[in-house]
Amino acid sequence: MQHTEEHLEHTETPHDMKSQIWKTFWILFALTIVDIALYFMLLSNHSILKNWVFIILGVVKAYYIVGVFMHMKFERKVLMYTIILPMLFVVFLVALMIIEGNFTNMLRWVK
């Protein structure tokens, strides 16, 4: 089979890409502003919940960067899973190591 036409064989890019880019920019901008505002509002608050809010905001930002800027939303699903699934295991490892770190902290106080 000969495919000689100079044709980008990738999935569709939406026609309104430019407006999507700017929309994503404003979303990222707003999320960062929310981050900063929360940081200063909750300076004297030291709950675990605050950490989770920041982590979730980070993941939402990551979704927009990978989805729109890196074009992942418009690629084939199989490519998406190839990249995203291994990272989910890494997140699992992060959680495990933080729990392990807390135990190491406790061991420092056992004499």
């Binding site: 890494v90 490892l93 992060v94 190591m97 933080i98 392990e100 770190g101 807390n102 190491t104 902290n105 420092r108």
Partner: peptide, 10 residues
């Protein structure tokens, strides 16, 4: 970042 999380929590 895992090393960071582990050491910080230790």
């Amino acid at each position: 970042l895992i090393a960071y999380g582990f050491i910080r929590h230790s």
